[in-house]
Simulated scan of single mutants.
Amino acid sequence: MMKGLKKWRLFSLLAALTIFLSGCGEEYLSTLAPAGQVGRDQFNLLLLASAIMALVIIVVVIIYVIALTRYSRKKVGENVIPKQVEGSHTLEIIWTVIPILLLVILAIPTVYYTYKHADVAAMDQVDEEGNKTHLTVNVTAKLYWWEFEYPELGIVTAQELVVPTDEQVFFNLKAADVKHSFWIPSIGGKLDTNVENVNKFYLVFDKESAGLEDGVFYGKCAELCGPSHALMDFKVKSMNRDDFNEWAEAMKTTVHTAEGDLAKQGEELFQTASCIGCHATGGEGMAPQTGPSLATFGDRNRVAGFMDHTKENVKAWISDPQKYKPGNVMPDDTELNGGKEFTDEQLDALAEYLMGLSIEK
């Protein structure tokens, strides 16, 4: 009996710790620290639902405790039967009306925000010159990476979404292979990306990401899509509108020139090894692309979306991509290098070249 009680005590302690730890999280990744209007609306709905549930639990516990204390056998004796209230119209009305009221209180803001966040009419608004007044990003989810196309700007990025702050940013979401789900926990979402249709919604980014620990917000795939689903991350850089315009202009005019002998060797190898057939190195372009754009590879903080951004990890990824992200479609080095594995010297050259693909340095 005592062993059973100890187990229940341990279980209760773990349950309490889970509740407290659920409130812990980094600002760049936590839904409990919203940094956008959509995320804040969703967070407020979560608080409302939690408050209603807590209220119901407290009332039930109070009634339960009163029943235990007032009608215990020690107090009223063995043969006392409490007054029976079965069929009481008053009680029937109370426990029918109160749940309905609670549901209405929860349903009204839920329905309101559901329609508000699904309203994408402003996506097609144009000014007097015929230019769109809001930024639109076409998001394509692929195994296991993300492509972001800015159709009005004529640029394409991969693995890093760059957006302006303090305005609505609209998204067209689709998948190139299987179902995925687009989610930026700190900002809002999530919404599925399907092969058959395009889903649309908008987000608002209130905070510039430069002040965050890693300088970015983290986005994720929230739909199980294959063996490397957990590694299908992307990063979000949010900046003020002026900085965003400068970034976009830099992307449009990107011309990478390899500096140093080693980087030049890497550039030549990148061309001859057919890497250029799948990966663009310029910011301008139109989706879709077979592989992620590498135009800003040197500015990223991760390799393949999840590995530390170091030359050693670049070399490891090129050598054996299946080891680190099973199921991805990138060929191994023997397919790229005429049936031979890349030598250490070749890998050093490729890593040097790729790390130099930057528009921010």
Rank of each mutant, 00 (worst) to 15 (best):
F205P: 02
L29P: 03
W317G: 06
T253Q: 11
L336I: 02
A273D: 13
S22Q: 13
L68W: 12
T257E: 14
E92V: 00
I187P: 00
F270G: 07
V216D: 01
T296A: 12
G226P: 03
R9L: 14
K361S: 14
Q322F: 03
T31Q: 15
I155Q: 05
L294S: 11
V111Y: 10
E129S: 15
E152K: 03
Y28K: 08
M2Y: 08
E259L: 03
D333W: 05
L13G: 12
A304Y: 06
K323S: 12
A16M: 14
D124H: 14
S209K: 07
D192M: 00
L17Y: 09
L336P: 00
I155V: 15
V56N: 12
M53L: 14
C275K: 06
N194L: 12
V76F: 02
D344G: 06
P321E: 09
L357Y: 08
Q265I: 00
V156K: 03
T140Q: 05
V60L: 13
E246P: 01
L191Y: 07
D348F: 06
L55E: 07
E249H: 02
K315F: 11
A273V: 08
L55S: 13
V162P: 03
N337T: 00
T110F: 12
I100Y: 02
Q346A: 06
F342V: 01
Q42W: 08
G77W: 02
I100F: 07
L48T: 11
V137E: 04
Y218G: 00
G305Y: 06
A158L: 01
E249F: 02
M53D: 12
A16F: 15
K220A: 04
D308F: 09
V329D: 11
I108T: 09
K116P: 04
E360C: 00
V61A: 15
G339P: 04
Y71Q: 09
D177S: 11
K174V: 04
V120A: 07
L135C: 11
V111P: 04
K83I: 09
E128S: 15
C225D: 10
A287Y: 08
L32A: 12
E196N: 15
G4D: 09
S181D: 13
V56Y: 09
N328P: 01
T254A: 10
G215I: 01
M2E: 10
Q42P: 00
W8I: 13
T334R: 13
T157S: 10
G282K: 15
Q265K: 15
P109Y: 06
V80W: 10
V162I: 14
D308V: 07
S238G: 02
D206M: 04
Y324H: 10
V314N: 05
A67G: 15
K207N: 08
G211Q: 03
P292N: 03
D127A: 08
A15F: 14
Q346C: 08
I19M: 14
L350Q: 02
V120S: 07
L224Y: 08
L347H: 04
K311W: 02
G356I: 06
I19H: 05
V76Y: 03
P326C: 03
